[in-house]
Structure formats: structure tokens, C-alpha cells
Design a binder for these strands. Sequence first.
DNA 1: TGTACATCAGTGAACGCGCGTTCACTGATGTAC
DNA 2: TGTACATCAGTGAACGCGCGTTCACTGATGTAC
Lengths: 180, 180
Amino acid sequence: MRRSKEDAARTREQIVEAASRLFRQKGIAGVSVADVMGACGLTVGGFYKHFKSKDALVAEAIERASITSTAGGPREAEDILRAYVSFEHAKHPEAGCPIAALCSDIHREHGAPREAFDTALERMFERIPAPRRQQLAMAATAVGAVVLARASKDPKVAEEVLSAARQELLEVFHSPRHRR
Amino acid sequence: MRRSKEDAARTREQIVEAASRLFRQKGIAGVSVADVMGACGLTVGGFYKHFKSKDALVAEAIERASITSTAGGPREAEDILRAYVSFEHAKHPEAGCPIAALCSDIHREHGAPREAFDTALERMFERIPAPRRQQLAMAATAVGAVVLARASKDPKVAEEVLSAARQELLEVFHSPRHRR
DNA sequence: TGTACATCAGTGAACGCGCGTTCACTGATGTAC
DNA sequence: TGTACATCAGTGAACGCGCGTTCACTGATGTAC
């Protein structure tokens, strides 16, 4: 039956929120529209009252994740870096960076999800207080470390990779080569 | 109808080869058993005369890619690095590093594919002539750069990321911090 | 070396299943009078 | 303010489709005599 405008808006928010967590956790192809709706206590059919297609939701979920995953975290560049390249982050993709979580899913996508990802990528670069060249190199190291840590079965190797990348990044930050 | 032992062995090789290229290009979930067999000019049914399951093929395909993707390339560490963190590599996942191609697919897999990937990962680390800590950090940067280059829609950004990572890696290689 | 038979690589249709999307329906909400 | 009606959020079944896997079948290959 029909719901009030406020209820409907709240439902829509819930769907984006759930999708944003589920996609990061299980990948885009690994989560069905029914999974997302189920996580909100709803049934599949209602989905299309809120979104044109699964792709439209994917795009919104990426954008949402790209904004909220950095909110409430540390403010200082070094602390952000330490939090990003951490075991905690590697262990919890559903609450973490959508770029690290979806980077190899995304290059098979087209249209809106692709563009949302590109925007998220630029947003990430901008958050690193360094000249462009180092923004890019540091982003590569940070994302690579998290992705490899997640990929390796052995948590000891995961921690090793993260710690190595963390050290490397902090050295770059402190080296005379690094100019703000 | 039945084929000679030699023909059958050749077919098996063909399947692994085709799978190894297709999985790297389109992801594990993006390639069906029928796709692989079709690429070899065969029909689906015959697949199970050669492999227990799709997963068994995935594991073999990863192992194969991990060995062949480095064969025939440059021998010198710096040249290997330059070839790895290149636009050419980013543009051709099907012939490149299976780790960069499948890193975010893999952490949803279990069993044999997972183990094959772990082995490939260790193989990659070992190929970098540096102390363990730097092997890991450099691998993270290299993989991260290729993955981000592939993820970004704009080829200019892709080239920027690769070039930044390449420079960073070469500096680490040449810095006094780097000890063989 | 020749013959009879078992083996098995490859075919093509079928299986159950889960997917994204559509649809007729329900009934509370919102609106026009 | 009260009433009649249109709207539309959410339901649950159905759609066509592609998937991994199974299966009865075919006929050349390999083997036992």
C-alpha cells in the first residue's frame, strides 16, 4: 500500500545505504536487487518505484560510499593514511573505500556506475595533501596495499603488505621530495 | 567422437590458455564455461571430460597466467618494472598479470582458485630483487597503479597514475634505502 | 597382423537455479471539490 | 472540515535469460586376443 512521502524517502535512503555496504562487501555482481531489498526488509518489486535500474542504484551507492566512507574519520593527513592502509580497513570493505572495494569490478561497467567511480577517484586524489604526481603515486600504493591485503588468504601476509606500504608512504610524506 | 590422446591433451591446453586470457579480460564471473569452450571451437558438454568444475579451471588458469605472463618479457628488474607499470600492460589485461586483473574478484572465491592466487602472489613478491619489506610495498604500488589506470575512464588520468607510480618506484630502487 | 570390443573426447539438449525486470494488484496517502 | 477519487509505495508472482552441470548418445581410438 502507499506510504507517506517521508516514509518513501526514508526507504530510498535505506536502499542506497544497504546497497553501498553490500556492493563493497560482495561486489556488484555478487549482490542482487533482491538481496538489497531483503536487507531493508522489503520485497523485490518495489525497487523500481525508487530506481530506474540496478545500474542506477550502483552509481548512487558508489557516490554515497565515496562521501560517507571518509566522514567521521581522522582529519590529519597522516592519520587518514594510517587508517586507510590498516588491517581494520582491509577487514571491513563494507564500511571502507569504494575504490579499493570495487576497482576491478568497475572496469567491466559502463555508463553511470563508471562515471560515479571516476568522480570518486578524483575525490580521493584531492584528499591527499601533496602535489598531483605524489597524490597519484600514493593513492596507487594505498589502494594496492588494501587490495593485496584483502586478496591474500594469510592474515600475516596481509598485515605485512599493509605495514610495508604504510612505512613507505610515511617516508615519502616526510622526505624532502615531498612538497606541499 | 573419441580423439587421440595427443589431440585431447592439446584441447586441454587450449582450454586453459583461452580461460586464462578470458578471465583476465572479463573477470571470473564475466566468463562462462560455454564462452571458454566456444573460444576453442568446442561445445559446453565436453568441458567436464577435462575439468571437475569451473573452479578447477579457474585455479589452473590463474596458475598458468602467473607463469606465462612473465615469460618472454624483460630480464632486468628495472625493465620488468617499467613494463609492468605501463599503459601497454594496463590496456591488455588478457596478456598481463593475473594479480592485477583478478585481485578484487579473488577475495570472493574459495578453495583452489584462492590458493592458486596466493601462490601467484608469492611468486610476484619473489621476482622483485629487494628486501621483503620493499618487495611488498613495491608490489602494492605497481598493482595499485595498474588497477587504478584500468579503473579510470580517462586514458590521460591512467597514464598520469602509471607515470607517477613508475617514477616513485624507480626512485625507491635508486635510493640509498634500497639494499639488495 | 587382423578382428572384436571397451573406452572416452566431444555433441547438443536438458536440468534446476538465480538473475534483472515487469506486472496486476492492494490500500493508505494526498488532493480536488 | 468532509468526502470522493487519483496516486503510488510496496507485494508477490511471473517473464525471459544465461548460468554451471548432467546426460544419453556418437564414433574414432586404443587394447586384448
